[in-house]
Design a protein around this nucleic acid. Sequence first.
DNA 1: CGATACGTCACGCATTATGGAACGCCTTTT
DNA 2: AAAAGGCGTTCCATAATGCGTGACGTATCG
Lengths: 261, 261
Amino acid sequence: MKSPTAAPEPSASNVKGAQTLMRALDILDEVIAGPVRSADLARKLDISKTTAHRLVQALRSRGYLSITKDGFALGPKLLQLGVHATEQIDFVRVATPFMTELSHETGFCVFVGKREGDWSRHLERITGTQRLRVATAPGDRRPIAETGLGKALLLDEPEEVWEVLYRQSREGSVTKKEVAAFISHMRQHASAGYVQHDSELGDSVRSIAVPIRDARGKIAIAISVASAAHYLTEQVKPTLTAAIIATAAKIGEAVGQTQIR
Amino acid sequence: MKSPTAAPEPSASNVKGAQTLMRALDILDEVIAGPVRSADLARKLDISKTTAHRLVQALRSRGYLSITKDGFALGPKLLQLGVHATEQIDFVRVATPFMTELSHETGFCVFVGKREGDWSRHLERITGTQRLRVATAPGDRRPIAETGLGKALLLDEPEEVWEVLYRQSREGSVTKKEVAAFISHMRQHASAGYVQHDSELGDSVRSIAVPIRDARGKIAIAISVASAAHYLTEQVKPTLTAAIIATAAKIGEAVGQTQIR
DNA sequence: CGATACGTCACGCATTATGGAACGCCTTTT
DNA sequence: AAAAGGCGTTCCATAATGCGTGACGTATCG
């Protein structure tokens, strides 16, 4: 059985014997914000002008930096790496440790999922400590407008799309009033940045879901906590919601989401 | 006066005193193709298993690599850097040295430009050795369907867009036949990958233009050689075209264009 | 026309990174 | 079942690597 501790992540300071590399990466971090002069780098990172110069030239020779009239900027090589990273990165794998952490903190069961056309696909589940479990398993596919997780994946869509998908999930048998209510709720969710969803199947399943955006700001996946309404009461909701949002923010940061501005 | 030699580019081997960094970047280069095991890296790069391990852990601790079940893959940090690089990179600055080289090789005048809505903006010009010069100057804006450079920027657009922009450049006074001819020519250009354009103003200006794509494959800028038809004869055209295409390829590589597939 | 600040180069010292050896854990082979 | 091989990991002595001091040429500013 797996030990409960998460994967041993080398926490940056953990790693010894790569000073040159670390300093070079520090430089890249500084340059993210915008062009920086070599001398400024030396000061901010507290290294000698010479070292800054050497590292900057090395990075430039590899295309990681380029020279502009007001200092060094990110270079073309990073475009290439960025594109390939997009293809290679497994969002779920990145998210899993954070989900585990959340599950341990709260005791609830945590899910991740992504959009597949008009469906939402559940990709991974971290089981919590509660006896009563939501049956949804990794691999399950549900109409996207029908789950909290799915709705979180739709938060950036225009209202017309919401309507179409909602009608689709109800297979047409739906009143105008219901549609209007759905849209209205989605609007609230979108402005709040998270979704609270009560199952319409009468099984008292309640979930809270939050979308996670990739580096381009596009919603890539969503995480959700789902449980019986018996556990997920109005009292615990505020704290829990905050915890989920915090976790989503951490994951977002880990997948390179541009900082909130 | 500037020396005729291009900017002193640190040509990778030029840079000394950054072994650790260079090896780490070599690792990233290997991983671009797909997940690689740490031991394989040690072999391919001819370094000890220990060193490979240390570098890989360092890169991972910073998010440049991530662990997958079949080795190390590019990490989420590269998404972030990629996005910011897209904002920061000055394609013209990257292109200029290559354009200079082309100009010296051929003697012709070389231009770069980008698209601005329905216009093409000339951004930089490397003057050649010829007495007779095309007057277009950096900063000039022309209707996009009216110049070779502009047409190169449109090669990926659907035919409807070609038609709209062509009519626009002619201010409506255009026959169906002319439109059909334009579309037909554009089709040829698109499949050839370059544009040959003879000015319709009767000034005997002829140009050859090639688009340059960014890391996502989207046309970002275009370069062109323009001259009096007196210089740009049918005899020199094949050689010149090949040279321009080669230069465009080099620039494309420099801005991280995914290899031709 | 000094004064400041930047990028660049050369050089000697010691900090830093290197590879060998060895270990535990797996899967594959015998 | 045992042996063999491959992988990721840790420890350690060694010297090679990367560090900062100092100095030079050049632009920017007052």
